[in-house]
Design a binder for these strands. Structure first.
Lengths: 344, 344
DNA sequence: CTGAAAGCGCTTACAG
DNA sequence: CTGAAAGCGCTTACAG
């Protein structure tokens, strides 16, 4: 049995009230003498207050929950690390929930976290909500509204539920990738899209082309789903269109592209320039190190947590929900060079 | 304000006791009629019991804590995913703690988790305990003993604190890797070690050689620390000794080896065979896909959680602390072939 | 079949 | 400067 505040009170010959006051450093009430005695006794027994009881009494748990779509994509552990780091610094603990892209499990976690009285939530929506997405979002919206706790959405936004949102500036990222390719002299630039959540990357691709007066050719675009396989498939189609460069919606698909290129007897970057997105650890390690757009996962996680804690400390401020967009940064490695014919 | 059991009791015209009994499905006491009414009202308001209050009353929180050395090594998120999955299935929630290899932060988390009354702990020790390791382990031992909750250690064991331990069979893994190289006809097999926690991998390497009557040459071994850099450095030394194969203590170091080999004008596997350890995602993606030893992170995580929950359900069984070792499995890819001179 | 009461381990007005 | 009492939202002997 652990020692309790009552035990300390008894041994010190004071009330539980006094013990609580001393241990929580409440100001200007307690005589230095009793303060010391209580502190000594607490130290002697290494008293650690029972957070469960504290939480019940104060109605504040100092715990946060994070719901992640998976832990396979290295971006998500990085995000979690950032959130946890900032939480820890502020004495919050973090419940880890991995919904494995399942809509129903996601909903389940929302309930669990509510039951457990987390003070706030960091939420990444699952990407593949196969059946009845509207219904799913409706339920999420209801659960979130009912739970009454602040939420910050990361990476994947919900149209109908206004709340703080932390994300990389995907549009700018797509633009940056494409601009870089353009600056190297490419004009036939293919693109493999990601899932609908990330349509902004494609928007950036189009914007960059249009700013250069290059018309967007549907036949230079392929639909992808972020998998290596879909990158591979997309590249096969795009390569047939004789593009000289490809901007892949993420690094995994870029890997698929490089496979397809190799199979087609094309060298990267001499015959095909390639840019990815994320700066996944594989980017550094690919046969040809990949030029890509860095997504600062850990920093974004810290920011998300910071935004959440801000809400918690100013509960009735009623600040409008806000977007926090991170500037993408281009990491140049070896997968891009000017197109054949133009000099390197 | 959330609805409470008291609210339901009032509306149903029964006592809180009855509400509690009904909602927890306690058997054979309540008339079907009142049972139904209580259930209906609870459903109407979507009542979700306050877990904090439940925890305080029952002195059981249904929460576990996991302390990880970092979230960068993909093995750790995989482990966490396994733990969380099994925990979730059994209605436990999981606190995520990332000590970033810091001994002091690790100790801090031990205290935090104790304060928060977790029912059990899954612990991976930090690997680099620079200053006064003995003192650190002493403190860990004390904290763990004082906390009174079951602990399962994963991957990194503590000599002086007997408790359940889940790990890959590192000795067997090192043996398997080396045996494979031997079976391909290699006799000059170099090895780059990992950190001291993983000396068993090196043990396996030696065992395999000795079983074949090949003496262990210290000059064929280099000390590593699992970093790419240390693999690179080690390989430079080993290559000078004209080894025809290298077993690297993990995949990262294998990557360093492959860099060193390429720089030395050596092709993998024709001029140098290479085996790693872990089956890190990079293994598949390396310039030459890496033959390696799979460590089933998620399965190990599930197992660790299972072992922990077993302890929780049989608290006074006093079963001896036990080791749960996973069989390593060899994943053959393209980085190994017979040495030059022998036919492929 | 049901409820009053005590208790889990704290905090916090309130009174002195 | 200090303490008695009520309360946080549940559960659980115990009594009827």
């Amino acid at each position: 049995m652990r020692i309790t505040a009552k035990d300390i009170a008894r041994e010190a010959g004071v009330s539980e009230t006094t013990v609580s006051l001393v241990l929580n450093g409440r100001p200007a009430r307690i005589s230095e003498k009793t303060r010391k005695r209580v502190l000594e006794i607490a130290a002697k027994y290494r008293f650690a207050s029972n957070q469960i009881a504290v939480s019940l009494a104060t109605r504040k748990t100092y715990t946060l929950g994070i719901i992640l779509p998976n832990l396979t994509n290295p971006l998500f552990p990085r995000l979690a690390a950032g959130v946890e780091k900032h939480a820890q610094k502020n004495d919050y603990a973090l419940f880890l929930c991995n919904c494995e892209e399942s809509a129903s499990l996601f909903l389940h976690y929302l309930e669990v976290l509510q039951r457990r009285c987390t003070d706030g939530l960091i939420v990444l929506l699952p990407s593949e909500v196969d059946e009845r997405p509207d219904q799913f979002y409706q339920k999420v919206h209801e659960a979130l509204s009912a739970s009454q706790v602040p939420v910050v959405l990361v990476e994947r936004r919900m149209k109908d539920h206004p709340c703080d949102f932390v994300c990389i500036d995907n549009r700018r990222g797509g633009e940056l990738a494409t601009e870089y390719l353009l600056s190297m002299g490419h004009t036939r630039i293919g693109h493999i899209t990601g899932t609908p959540f990330f349509a902004e990357r494609t928007r950036g691709y189009k914007d960059a082309l249009e700013s250069c007066g290059i018309s967007v050719e549907p036949r230079w675009m392929a639909e992808g789903d972020f998998s290596i396989e879909s990158g591979y498939r997309g590249a096969r189609r795009l390569l047939a269109e004789r593009v000289t460069a490809i901007f892949a919606g993420n690094d995994e698909m870029a890997l698929g592209v490089s496979k397809a290129a190799t199979e087609a007897g094309l060298r990267i970057p001499e015959d095909l320039s390639l840019v990815g997105f994320d700066d996944n650890p594989i980017a550094k390690v690919m046969p040809v190190p990949l030029t890509t757009i860095l997504q600062p996962g850990e920093t974004m996680g810290e920011k998300a947590c910071e935004v959440l804690l801000d809400r918690l400390s100013n509960p009735d401020e009623e600040r409008e929900p806000q977007d926090f967009l991170f500037d993408p940064v281009l990491i140049t490695r070896r997968s891009v060079c000017p197109p054949a014919g133009k000099n390197c």
